[in-house]
Computed example of a mutant assay.
Amino acid sequence: MPISTSPLFPWTHWADGEHQALLHAHVAEAAFPCVGAKAALARGTLDVMAADRIDSAWDDLRIHDSLLTFTAAYRAEPTLFRSFAVVFDGPDDLDEAGFEGCLWQRIQSLSDKDVWRGQPYDDRVSHDPDSPHFSLSFGGEGFFVVGLHPQASRPARRFAKPTLVFNLHDQFERLRADGRYEPMRETILARDERYAGSRNPMLARHGTVSEARQYSGRVVDTEWRCPFDYTGENG
């Protein structure tokens, strides 16, 4: 079986070529709307690892190890358009609510491991999921998560395997500072409208509403409450 060619994770033989090829092909589709993901793919900075089922904690420690490695590599060379994706080996029949529940179980477990390992929370973001400045934090770096799965209602979120894509908060801030964030955001929204027939109603700018509502891809109402609870000293 072929293995991942990622320079960051040469040891992840579990990250087989099939899972990596599936995600790369999904992002490479002409109609796929996220130009940031396309840029990461073109630069060879879309790192992929495969893991056990998303409803299992079996690989959580290994995923957290990889997040810390990814964070350290970004700090050593803070180039734009780097993403880390975990492709899970099922289950493939989760509905949107079921996938959302599993997504937050994995996120909670990974965050708890961050606390256990003494990692600080990125002080540029909030750990409160109700805050408009909320982002996750691993290894002291803020992250925005994009969930993909087979039963997603939005075409751009529909993928053969349950997947979590971790994107660095710092990259969004650098794009804002360079004046590139708003044009890029509008391009993605317009492409998504052409792809799906409508713009994603859950997308919002950081600082206006909690980004936690966007992670799973499911449309939620104002009564929705995020199940995440940061357990660190600042929690």
Rank of each mutant, 00 (worst) to 15 (best):
M1Q: 05
M1C: 04
P2G: 05
I3P: 00
H13N: 05
H13D: 08
W14H: 15
A15N: 12
G17I: 12
L23I: 12
A25L: 10
A25F: 10
V27Q: 10
A30K: 15
P33T: 01
P33G: 01
A37H: 03
A39S: 09
A39W: 00
A40K: 01
L41V: 07
G44K: 07
G44Q: 11
L46I: 08
A50M: 06
I54T: 08
S56N: 02
A57N: 08
A57R: 09
D59R: 03
D60W: 07
R62W: 02
H64E: 09
S66N: 13
S66F: 09
L67Y: 07
L68C: 11
T69E: 14
T71A: 15
A72M: 08
A72C: 08
A72D: 15
A72Q: 14
A73C: 12
Y74G: 03
A76V: 11
A76S: 14
A76R: 15
A76G: 15
T79Q: 13
F81Q: 07
F81K: 04
R82L: 11
R82C: 11
F88S: 11
F88K: 06
D89S: 07
G90V: 00
P91R: 15
D95T: 07
E96H: 03
G98P: 00
E100A: 13
L103Y: 09
W104D: 09
W104S: 10
I107S: 05
S109V: 01
L110H: 10
K113L: 13
D114G: 12
V115I: 14
P120V: 04
Y121E: 04
S126D: 13
D128T: 12
P132L: 06
P132V: 07
F134E: 04
S135G: 00
L136E: 02
G139N: 02
G140I: 03
F143T: 05
F143I: 06
V146G: 07
L148A: 10
L148Y: 15
L148I: 06
Q151W: 04
S153D: 15
S153H: 15
A156Q: 11
R157S: 11
F159A: 11
L164S: 04
L164D: 03
V165Q: 07
L168I: 11
H169W: 13
F172M: 12
E173D: 04
E173C: 01
R174V: 02
R176Q: 06
Y181P: 02
E182P: 01
A190Y: 05
A190F: 07
E193S: 09
Y195D: 04
S198T: 00
S198N: 02
N200D: 14
P201Y: 14
L203G: 00
H206T: 02
G207H: 07
T208I: 13
T208L: 13
A212N: 04
A212L: 05
R213P: 01
R213D: 03
G217M: 14
T222Y: 06
T222F: 06
T222S: 14
E223K: 08
E223M: 07
R225T: 09
F228G: 00
Y230F: 04
G232L: 01
E233W: 02
G235L: 06
